[in-house]
């Protein structure tokens, strides 16, 4: 082997590591370092090295904790609604629609996702407002006589926003998850006379569990992490982790923002660890090699 080809082989091997190195440097490293910065001392405009748990104290002993827990609760409700509304769609597409057309149908759910989240969230204001789309339609239909005012600027508004923002993801992850459920299984079920409930409980849910879990975690952490949703749709008490972090940044309290980030990263790790122990999450992308 010539020296030149030796260099090119080792060069090509390094090129493939490039994405990994990039993600390590600009994603993994900053996320890990949040834990370090969270214990730094706050200064007027920035922070300086030190060790203090003041930011954590600030987070855990104030109204922030209650707001954070409330946002977790609302986010969990959104996850459940998304699952109930969205997962059957993924099952239907995999089970009843010809193989070649399946991807096209799922792509329909990309369309809303292609509109900026900012626009979609802001657009909910006119939709849910006193004289907006929902009230207008309901009053025309004669369902209500007085416009509903208890939607926007309440937790309900935030939950609606989360569901509309993240529902496509449960369809995508459910669709990927259903790859782990071969089609002939449905034929066996029909042959054995299993009803829909039993098919879901005994076959689909256990096999598609990793994908369902991944989709649920995605919605959950974004529900508690995207500041825009409570900021635009929620009332005064609607504050989630994302909003606490960005508010802290605006107030130049960087250690607090980093503490919130570290708490969120820890929450995510915990969830993913539990998920990985329960069902091997690598199977989502590789269902055939189970």
């Amino acid at each position: 082997m010539s020296i030149r080809s030796g260099i090119t082989t080792s060069l090509t091997r390094w090129v493939f590591i490039l994405p990994i190195a990039f993600m390590m440097l600009f994603f993994a490293l900053p996320m890990i370092l949040t834990a370090v910065w969270s214990v730094f001392e706050r200064t007027m405009f920035w922070m300086e090295p030190g060790f203090t748990l003041f930011s954590y104290e600030n987070f855990f002993t104030s109204a922030r904790l209650l707001n954070f827990l409330a946002s977790m609760y609302h986010s969990s409700i959104a996850v459940l609604i998304c699952l109930v509304l969205g997962f059957p769609i993924a099952v239907f597409v995999r089970r009843r629609i010809p193989q070649a057309a399946q991807h096209r149908v799922v792509l329909l759910f990309i369309l809303p996702f292609m509109v900026s989240e900012t626009i979609r969230v802001f657009a909910l204001r006119p939709v849910l407002q006193r004289n907006g789309l929902v009230n207008g339609a309901l009053m025309k239909l004669g369902v209500i006589t007085e416009p509903l005012t208890a939607i926007l600027y309440t937790p309900l508004g935030v939950i609606i926003g989360e569901v509309l923002s993240f529902l496509p993801f449960i369809v995508f992850s459910g669709f990927l998850a259903m790859e782990a459920v071969p089609r002939y299984i449905f034929e066996i079920c029909e042959d054995l006379g299993a009803n829909t409930f039993r098919v879901y409980k005994d076959i689909i849910l256990p096999l598609a569990a990793p994908g369902i879990f991944a989709g649920s975690v995605f919605i959950f952490v974004n529900g508690i992490g995207v500041a825009l949703l409570p900021n635009i749709l929620g009332g005064p008490g609607a504050v989630n982790a994302g909003l606490i972090a960005t508010q802290a940044i605006s107030a130049l309290d960087f250690p607090l923002a980093m503490a919130v980030s570290a708490i969120m990263t820890a929450t995510l790790f915990l969830l993913l660890y539990i998920g990985h122990r329960l069902f091997d999450l690598t199977h989502i992308l590789d269902p055939v090699n189970k």
């Binding site: 370092l33 995207v226 994302g242 940044i249 980093m258 990263t265 995510l268």
Partner: peptide, 15 residues
């Protein structure tokens, strides 16, 4: 995917 925009943004900003 699992790190929300505000959290990732804040961490990268400080980084």
């Amino acid at each position: 995917l699992f790190v929300s925009s505000d959290i990732m943004g804040s961490a990268l900003l400080v980084f």
